[in-house]
Amino acid sequence: MTPTDLRAAFIADLTAVAPDLDPAAIGDNDHMQDDLGLDSMDFLNLVSALHKRFGLPIPEADYPRLATAALAVAYLDQALAE
């Protein structure tokens, strides 16, 4: 998957757990909790959706690496390559 595909998939899962977010308005560096207002339940649902889509374990220790769309794309790209 290209970084563009990864970003599209990440945004799709994000807006599925937070349907009130406008996909077009989410910036690469918007912080999931601080800027987009996700709570811990929303964030866990996002991680669950990414786990389901990519089959990655995504341990809790890696959560900070999903804090923004830009970080998440880099993380997913690396994790899928391993």
Binding site: L44, H51, E60
Partner: peptide, 17 residues
């Protein structure tokens, strides 16, 4: 909680809440 979640896939993890 951390020990419990380490063995679980994200859909089965618990929150402190």
């Amino acid at each position: 909680l951390t020990a419990l979640n380490a063995d679980r896939t994200p859909d089965r993890r618990l929150l402190m809440g």
